[in-house]
Design a protein around this nucleic acid. Structure first.
Length: 282
DNA sequence: CATCAACCCTGAGAGC
DNA sequence: TGCTCTCAGGGTTGAT
């Protein structure tokens, strides 16, 4: 499930290209094929198919878990949700025949030079927008955790203004943009904070540690090109370095206590009951 | 405001 | 073997 590091990895690959594949920057759309109509959230498909051809990709950006492509006129925005992926491929096989879509291909963006951007999405939760103003889609997102203008004091103030459970709050994209289930569990373990701690009981010092560990986990995820989980995004190897996520019943790397799993806000949550104590906080 | 259930989907894994 | 059932997961929506 792509979270900030996986999205960052994908956007960097699209930006840089490689020896076999060109960058998406500077590519001009020729046509679009939509195989699953619900993948296009806005505008309606007919308008989407009409509006995109002729526009050039000017840049690649990431905002939270969104991929953002400023175009010559509009903005193309993609959210991969659970199982989405975006990759550049050639339109034709070596023998010259046109490649047929795989069962999980949902959208093909064809470029004028014969390359195409493929949107794969097994579980069909992904969403694509084509809008004149990116703020229409990205406007409600919270701060970027890796943005240096975002400080521990800012985080402390934001935590203090709510009385919510820490984990669901950190996963709330309007509170902070980019953390999902994996990186939140890993962060809270590193910061030695219980997932059910009330946000308004966090001290300024704890907020400082929390932000530091958020950044540390995200940067390690990016350095390892993200985590490859099940059917989802493949490429990185951060899944081999999880400390608590999906390690229920295993020993805590800090203290050896058995990792527990509970449900928090409808999400499975992994933590160490020894390192991450709740009892003293009502 | 905070919480929660339901929903959108598929495929893996369990149970029979 | 092959069927049915359960579940995960991000984000939205509507109810409590």
């Amino acid at each position: 499930m792509p979270e900030l590091p996986e999205v960052e990895t994908i956007i960097q690959n699209l930006r840089r290209g490689n020896t076999e594949t060109p960058s998406v920057i500077g590519q001009t759309f020729a046509s679009v094929q939509v195989f699953w109509s619900k993948s296009i959230f806005e505008p309606k498909i007919t308008q989407f198919e009409r509006q995109l051809p002729g526009q050039m990709i000017m840049d690649t950006r990431r905002r939270g878990k969104f991929l953002h492509f400023p175009l010559s006129s509009d903005h193309l925005i993609v959210h991969l949700r659970m199982s989405g992926d975006l990759s550049m491929t050639n339109n034709t096989n070596p023998n010259g025949e046109v490649k047929q879509p795989d069962p999980h291909d949902r959208v093909f963006f064809h470029f004028q030079n014969g390359w195409r951007l493929a949107f794969k999405d097994t579980r069909k939760f992904g969403r694509i927008w084509l809008v004149p103003d990116p703020e229409l889609v990205l406007g409600n997102l919270g701060p970027e955790p890796l943005d240096h203008n975002f400080t521990a004091e800012d985080l402390f103030m934001r935590l203090s203004s709510h009385k919510r459970q820490l984990k669901p709050l950190l996963m709330d994209q309007s509170f902070l943009a980019g953390l999902g289930n994996i990186y939140t569990d890993e962060t809270l373990h590193l910061a030695k904070l219980h997932p059910l701690r009330r946000s308004n009981t966090i001290s300024p010092e704890e907020a400082k540690i929390l932000l530091s560990e958020i950044r540390s986990v995200l940067k390690e995820g990016i350095r390892r090109s993200g985590a490859s989980i099940d059917w989802a995004y493949r490429g990185g190897d951060f899944q081999n370095y999880f400390r608590v996520y999906q390690r229920t019943g295993e020993a805590c790397p800090e203290c050896g206590t058995t990792i527990e799993r509970i449900k928090v806000g409808q999400r499975s949550t992994h933590f160490c009951p020894q390192c991450q104590v709740l009892s003293k906080y009502p």
